[in-house]
Design a protein around this nucleic acid. Structure first.
Lengths: 193, 193
DNA sequence: CCTACCGATCGGTAGG
DNA sequence: CCTACCGATCGGTAGG
């Protein structure tokens, strides 16, 4: 029973790694089977289908972001503090399970039909909630008056490269990254002279 | 002859669009044939192989970035002016042929063996030259003293989302994007009070 | 530029 | 958990 659970967990983790490294379409069930020391057909004693693996990866990560957003919206601080918390959220999720979050980020588009629709709905809702916080900060005078979707996507991408770059071997810690990326986003790379 | 040239061009453009929309591995030669109104076998009168299409897309775009870098390194201005020119370069390349540059960005990893090696060599060289300019700016006192690779990847990603977002229908022009993203990267989103 | 077809590989099932 | 196998689809070629 606990062994069963374990094997399924192992398959999910191997799938995330393969999807990240080779991409969903380029990963075959034979590749996955080999990675967990099984024959391809035996995988189906533990999982339902290839797409189920991708769904789990995508929706688990989406949930992490949405739960984080729930918490941050409840904060009583300024828009700046909320954006700082969101930057930290993204970087913490990324560095805690870099494999899974990278697969989520790059491979969600291979979800099919209704799963894809549902995923995009969650994503749009997350983006809207993030953008609302930015808009509040602009209205407040906390942030510069630049188109809020430009600010949104600049912040998004500034934390996104961490997925491709962060490796346990790096000397820079997650908390260093949070501090430095936050500093760049808030005040820019130019020195104030 | 010029018709022959045209058909090849049409195939390359259709391939870039399909690779961008579905991914390289999920795009079949039957898909591509349908998009250009041919049978799959007839494609091979115009092209050598599927991978040749990906190679062309990847190396053409790599060349655009490297030629831009050549020009910018020759400038006599400050590091800040060079970084501004690089930001503008990225956004101009992205908005001029958004389809091709997105395929280049997302699908290069499906290059095989020696093509992949060569591509990575070009990419590393580009990144190094970019980072050298940043290092110069830090040494100069023009830029804040934050780890240069953090600055490099933050700048890279801040212009990267444009690929996924920019559509001819948008009200914001490429030149607006350049101005706003440059402003955010140089001085941040926080107002100076 | 097409029809016809190749061997390889795909995700997945049957049956034990 | 395996062997054996399914129909579908893949990139690409032969031959006209």
């Amino acid at each position: 029973m606990s062994e069963e659970k374990n094997k399924q967990q192992i398959i999910y983790e191997a799938a995330a790694r393969l999807f990240r490294d080779k991409g969903y379409r380029a990963t075959s069930m034979r590749d996955l089977a080999k990675a967990v020391d099984l024959k391809a057909s035996s995988l189906y004693n533990h999982i339902k289908s290839k797409e189920e693996l991708l769904k789990a990866i995508c929706f688990e990560n989406a949930k992490k972001f949405l739960l984080g957003m729930d918490q941050i919206e409840k904060l009583t601080g300024s828009a700046r503090e909320k954006v700082e918390a969101l930057i930290a959220l993204h970087i913490r999720i990324a560095t805690e399970d870099i494999t899974s979050v990278t697969a989520f980020n790059d491979e969600w588009r291979h979800l099919s039909g209704s799963a894809l629709e549902e995923f995009l709905k969650l994503r749009r809702s997350y983006e809207k909630r993030f953008e609302d916080i930015i808009k509040q900060g602009i209205a407040n005078g906390e942030f510069v008056t630049i188109d809020s979707s430009i600010l949104l996507f600049t912040i998004f991408s500034s934390v996104r490269w961490v997925y491709d770059w962060y490796k346990p071997g790096r000397k820079i810690t997650a908390e260093d990254l949070i501090a430095h990326i936050t500093a760049v986003l808030l005040d820019g790379i130019r020195t104030t002279q």
